[in-house]
Design a protein around this nucleic acid. Structure first.
Length: 882
RNA sequence: GGAGGCAUAGCUCAGCUGGUUAGAGCGCAUGCUUCACACGCAUGAGGUCACAGGUUCGAGUCCUGUUGUCUCCACCA
C-alpha cells in the first residue's frame, strides 16, 4: 500500500489513465439507486468546427463540478453532451477547404455533392472537440452524445416546424432582413455586430414637383439607396413643412415623382427633419412605407450590386454606386453639403462586411404569444437565473420580442420542409418528404432551398437529446425537465430564452429550473480572447503544462457567477502548486501508514486535542461547502476547501502530528494516523468535484472502501464530531504559538539559538497534554513551559496573547528601543480599540437592540483588551527601566 | 437613447441574508536546505472598502446622487 510516490506530482502521468478508468468503469452513466432523484444537465453543444477555448473550459468545469457533486450525493446524475452543426461556420470552413485544395466553389459541386463533403468533414473532424473536452475531465455520458443534425434531432426539428406551421406560428413573409452580401444570406438580429465607424452624412436636394427652385433637403448615410426611394417623410408636427405635406417631389437621377408624407417616426431635431424613404432597404422606412402605401423598390441584388431597377448604375457594387451617385448629384447641383458623421454600422459577425438591410422573402416564427408564456414562466419562478440580475436581461428581450427570422440561404443545415407547387402555387408543409402537392396532387413541386437557423435546432436541445418527439422515450420521461443549465451571459437571448420558449411550447414545462450564468474569460488585459487579436490562451496547452486540475481550479477560484474573469497563467501555476501540496501531504500520510491500516476513526476517548480540533473544523467545512455548492457558490466553496487543506491540514495538523508519529508511543501514533487518513479521505471527497484527477489518484492509494472516488459518497456533517470547546482551546494554543514565532522573528533569533521564551498559559492543560507538538511548532528547544508565574519578573518582558503569557528575558532583546516602539504602537492600537468598544457598550441602544451574542462578544473583547493594555504597560515600564 | 455590472492591498479578485481590529492568490521584504513539499516553511509591510449624502445601535455590505469604467439591448436618417 505504502508505495513510493514521486516528490513532484506529475499530472501528465495520471490524468489519461484515470479518465480511462472512469470511462471503462461506466461511472459517467447515471449511478443513482432506483429511487434516486435525477439531476440532469445538458451541455451547451460546441460547434463541430470548434477548437477548444477557455470559454469551453469554463463551461465544462462548472458543469462537471456540479455533476460530480450531485453524483456523489447520490443523485441519478446525467450530463448529456453533444455537438452543434453550426450552419454558416461549418459551411464556410468546408468551402474554404474546397477552394484551397481543389479550386472549386460549392456551386461547382452542387448541393448534394457539397453536403456529402460536409458530412465527410464532420465524420473526420467532428470528434475533435469531444476528445478535447475529455481532456477537461468532463464526466459526460458519451454514449448519449447527440448531434443537432442526427436523425433524432432532425425529426424533432421537422416536428416542431410543422406543428408551429400548423398553428400558424410560422409564416413566410417579406420583411427587411439583415443581409450579408458577402455570405449571401440573411442574418438574424443577433448575428449582426454593430461597430462604431466614421461615416458621412450627405445632404441631398430633392426638387419639389411643380415648384421651380424649391427643394426638400434630406440627409442620408447611404446615398446609393436613393435609387430605391419611394417617398420623403416629415414629422406631422413640424411647422417648417406643413405646406408641403401631400405634395410630391422629384427623385433626382431617377426622375420619379415620389410623395411627401407625414409620419411620427421622423425626429424633428435630427438633420433637416426630412427623411428619404427607401422601404426596400431600411427597416424603419419599411414600416413607414407600409403605413403610407409607399412603393417597395429593391435596387440591390443578393451580392450587393445595383440591379436592373437602378438605371445606369446597374452592375455597380454598392460602394461604386455611392461614389458615382454623389458625383452625379454634385454635378447637378443637388448636393447641399457633406458632414462627418459617426454612426453604428451593422456588420456580419462572420465576415465583418457591412450588413445591407434588404427586403426579401423569409420564414419567420411569430414570437409574441410564445414569449408571453416564457415571460410568465420566469415570473412564476419556474426558471431562476443565477445570479438573479440576468432575469432583467431576459425580460428586456422577451418584452421587446420581434419575430424570429429562421431561414438561412445556406445548404448546410435542416432544410425547410416546405414544397411549392408549380401548378397551383400551394405550399405543402409536411413531416414526411412530400412527393406531390397536398392540394392539387401535382408532382411539379419544388422544395424550399433554404435551411433553418442553427439556433432553431439548438432551441430544442433539452428535449431532443432525451428522445423527443418520442413522447414515450424513457430518458425523456425520467430526465426532463433538466436541472441546471450552465452557460455564458452572451447567449442568454440567442439560446437560453429560445430553449425556454420551446420547452414550454412543446413539452408544456420549462426545460430547467436554474440557469447558472458565468462570465467571459478574458486575457490579462481584460480583452476578449479572439483569433484576430491572437491573445487566446489554449486550454490544452495549460493542461499539458500544469494539469487539468490546476486549470479547473483556476476557472472556479476567485470568480463569482456572472462576472468576467481575467486569465492569469500565474493563477494556474498557483493551483498547480496546490496540487503538489496536496500530493506531498498525501505522501507524508502514506509514508507513515502501516500495511494493515484501515480507514476508521479511533474511539473518541483516544482523540487528543489536535485531533478533535481538526475533526471539528472538518465538520464545519463539510457543512459549509455543501451549502455553498447547493447555492452554486462554487468559488466560495472551493476557496474553503483550499484553505482547509493548505492551512488547517498541512500547515497545522500535519505538523501537530509529527511529535506523535515520531514517538515510540504506538497507541498515540496510531490514533494520529487514523485521524490523518480519515481527514484526508473526507477532504479528497470535498475536493473531488473541482480537482477530479489528483483526488482520485490519491484516494486509490489510501485505505478505502468502494471502487472509485468519483462514485464515493459525499461527506456529511456528523454531530458526534463537533468539538466546540476543544476547537477553541486549540485556537488559543495556536495564537500563543504564532506570538512566539513572531517574537522570535522580531528579535532575530536564529533557529539554532535558544530564544528562551517562557510560556505560561491560562489553560496549562492544553500545553502539557501534547508536549511534543508545541515544542516542535515553536522550535521547541527555544521554549520552556512554565506551570506557575516566574517569581522574579525583573528583567522580563511580558507579552499577552489570548490565553497565554509569554515571558521574555530582556537579555534576549536585540534592540530595546525597537521593542519599545513596537509596544508603543500596540498600546496605541489597543487603547483606540478599547475606546471604540467602550463607546459601543455604553450606547444604550446598542445594548438594547443588538443580539445578545454580539453584545457578549463585545464585552469579552473589552475585558481582554483591558488585560492586554495592562500587560503592555507593565512591559513598557520594565523596558524603560533599562 | 434604454438597461445592467463593476469600483476593496502594487496586480487579479473573494467577501452569503448589515454585527470580531476587512481576506486570498501573485508580487514585495526578512529569515530558514526543520526528517511530505523550495511548486516549500515562518514572519512581516501594504487598504479613510471610488466620492458625497441617507437609513440603522451598527454599513465594504441596504437606499439616493456624483464620477470613472465595462457590458448588453435598440439603433436616428
Amino acid at each position: 500500500m505504502a508505495r513510493e510516490l514521486p516528490k513532484i506530482y506529475e499530472p501528465q502521468q495520471v490524468e489519461n489513465r484515470i479518465y480511462q478508468m472512469w470511462e471503462e468503469g461506466g461511472y459517467f452513466k447515471p449511478q443513482g439507486k432506483p429511487d434516486a432523484k435525477p439531476f440532469t444537465i445538458v451541455m451547451p453543444p460546441p460547434n463541430v468546427t470548434g477548437q477548444l477555448h477557455m470559454g469551453h473550459a469554463m463551461d465544462a468545469t462548472l458543469q462537471d463540478t456540479l455533476i460530480r457533486f450531485k453524483r456523489m450525493q447520490g443523485f441519478d446524475a446525467l450530463w448529456v453532451p453533444g455537438t452543434d452543426h453550426a450552419g454558416i461556420a461549418t459551411q464556410i470552413k468546408v468551402e474554404e477547404q474546397l477552394r484551397k485544395n481543389e479550386g472549386l466553389s460549392r456551386h461547382d459541386l452542387g448541393r448534394e455533392k457539397f453536403l456529402e463533403r460536409v458530412w465527410a468533414w464532420k465524420h473526420q473532424y467532428g470528434n475533435r472537440i469531444v476528445e478535447q473536452q475529455k481532456k477537461l475531465g468532463a464526466s459526460c455520458d458519451w454514449d448519449r452524445a447527440r448531434f443537432t443534425m442526427d436523425e433524432g434531432c432532425s425529426k424533432a426539428v421537422r416536428e416542431v416546424f410543422v406543428s408551429l406551421y400548423e398553428k400558424g406560428l410560422i409564416y413566410k413573409g417579406s420583411r427587411i432582413v439583415n443581409w450579408c452580401p458577402h455570405c449571401i444570406t440573411a442574418l438574424s438580429d443577433a448575428e449582426v455586430e454593430y461597430v462604431d465607424k466614421p461615416g458621412k452624412l450627405w445632404h441631398l436636394k430633392y426638387p419639389i414637383a411643380g415648384e421651380e427652385g424649391r427643394y426638400v433637403i434630406v440627409a442620408t448615410t447611404r446615398p446609393e439607396t436613393m435609387l430605391g426611394d419611394s417617398g420623403v417623410a416629415v414629422n406631422p408636427n413640424d411647422e417648417r413643412y406643413q405646406d408641403i405635406i401631400g405634395k410630391k417631389c422629384i427623385l433626382p437621377l431617377m426622375n420619379r415623382e415620389i410623395p411627401i408624407v407625414a409620419d411620427d417616426y421622423v425626429d424633428l431635431g435630427f438633420g433637416t427633419g426630412c427623411v428619404k424613404m427607401t422601404p426596400a432597404h431600411d427597416p424603419n422606412d419599411f414600416e413607414v412605407g407600409l403605413r403610407h402605401n409607399l412603393e417597395m423598390i429593391r435596387v440591390l441584388d443578393d451580392a450587393g450590386k445595383v440591379n436592373e431597377l437602378g438605371g445606369k448604375y446597374q452592375g455597380m457594387d454598392r460602394y461604386e454606386a455611392r461614389k458615382a451617385i454623389i458625383a452625379d448629384l454634385e454635378e447637378l447641383g443637388l448636393l447641399e453639403k457633406i458632414e462627418d458623421h459617426q454612426h453604428n454600422v451593422g456588420t456580419c459577425y462572420r465576415c465583418g462586411n457591412d450588413v445591407e438591410p434588404i427586403v426579401s422573402a423569409q420564414w419567420f416564427v411569430s414570437m409574441k404569444t410564445l414569449a408571453e408564456e416564457a415571460i410568465r414562466s420566469v415570473n412564476d419562478g419556474e426558471t431562476k437565473f443565477v445570479p438573479e440580475r440576468f432575469t432583467k436581461n431576459y425580460m428586456n428581450w422577451m418584452n421587446n420580442i420581434r419575430d424570429w427570422c429562421i431561414s438561412r440561404q445556406l445548404w448546410w443545415g435542416h432544410q425547410i420542409p416546405v414544397w411549392y407547387c408549380a401548378d397551383c402555387g400551394h405550399m405543402t408543409c409536411s413531416r414526411e418528404d412530400a412527393t406531390c402537392c397536398e392540394k392539387c396532387g401535382s408532382t411539379h413541386i419544388e422544395r424550399d432551398p433554404d435551411v433553418l437557423d442553427t439556433w432553431f435546432s439548438s432551441a430544442l436541445w433539452p428535449f431532443e437529446t432525451l428522445g423527443w418527439p418520442d413522447a414515450e422515450a424513457e430518458d425523456l420521461k425520467k430526465y426532463y425537465p433538466t436541472s441546471v443549465l450552465v452557460t455564458g451571459y452572451d447567449i442568454i437571448t440567442f439560446w437560453v430564452s429560445r430553449m425556454i420558449v420551446s420547452g414550454l411550447e412543446h413539452m408544456g414545462q420549462a426545460p430547467f429550473h436554474t440557469v447558472l450564468i458565468h462570465g467571459l474569460v478574458r486575457d490579462n488585459l481584460g480583452r476578449k480572447m479572439s483569433k484576430s487579436l491572437g491573445n487566446g490562451i489554449d486550454p490544452l496547452e495549460m493542461i499539458e503544462k500544469y494539469g487539468c486540475d490546476a486549470l479547473r481550479m483556476n476557472m472556479v477560484t476567485g470568480n463569482s457567477p456572472g462576472n468576467d474573469m481575467r486569465f492569469y497563467v500565474e493563477r494556474t501555476e498557483a493551483m498547480r502548486n496546490f496540487a503538489n501540496k496536496l500530493w506531498n501531504a498525501s505522501r507524508y500520510v502514506l509514508m507513515n501508514l502501516s500495511e494493515d491500516a484501515k480507514n476508521a476513526l479511533p474511539a473518541v476517548e483516544k482523540l487528543e486535542i489536535a485531533d478533535k480540533w481538526v475533526l471539528s473544523k472538518l465538520n464545519t467545512l463539510i457543512a459549509e461547502v455543501t451549502e455553498n455548492l447547493e447555492k452554486y457558490e462554487l468559488g466560495v466553496a472551493v476557496q474553503k476547501v483550499y484553505d482547509f487543506i493548505w492551512d488547517t491540514y498541512c500547515d497545522w495538523y500535519i505538523e501537530l502530528t509529527k511529535a506523535r508519529l515520531y514517538s515510540e508511543d504506538q497507541e498515540r501514533k496510531e490514533t494520529a494516523m487514523s485521524v490523518l487518513v480519515y481527514v484526508l479521505d473526507q477532504t479528497l471527497r470535498l475536493l473531488h468535484p473541482f480537482m477530479p484527477f489528483i483526488t482520485e489518484e490519491i484516494w486509490q492509494s489510501i485505505p478505502h472502501e468502494g471502487e472509485a472516488l468519483i462514485v464515493a459518497q459525499w461527506p456529511e456533517f456528523r454531530q458526534e464530531l463537533a468539538f466546540k470547546a476543544e476547537e477553541e482551546q486549540m485556537e488559543s494554543v495556536m495564537n500563543a504559538i504564532r506570538a512566539i514565532r513572531n517574537r522570535r522573528t522580531e528579535m532575530n533569533v536564529p533557529p539554532s539559538k535558544k530564544a528562551a521564551l517562557f510560556v505560561l498559559t491560562a489553560k496549562p492543560q492544553i500545553f502539557t497534554e501534547g508536549e511534543g507538538f508545541l515544542q516542535r511548532l515553536a522550535y521547541a528547544d527555544a521554549v520552556t513551559l512554565l506551570d506557575t508565574e516566574p517569581e522574579n519578573l525583573d528583567g522580563m518582558v511580558t507579552i499577552t496573547t489570548a490565553d497565554a503569557k509569554l515571558y521574555i528575558p530582556m537579555g534576549q532583546l536585540v534592540d530595546v528601543a525597537k521593542e519599545l516602539e513596537r509596544i508603543g504602537k500596540e498600546l496605541e492600537n489597543a487603547r483606540k480599540f478599547l475606546k471604540s468598544l467602550d463607546a459601543k457598550l455604553s450606547n444604550e441602544k446598542f445594548v438594547a437592540r443588538a443580539p445578545e451574542a454580539v453584545v457578549n462578544a463585545e464585552r469579552e473583547k473589552q475585558a481582554k483588551t483591558r488585560d492586554l493594555i495592562a500587560q503592555l504597560e507593565q512591559s513598557e515600564a520594565a523596558l524603560k527601566k533599562l
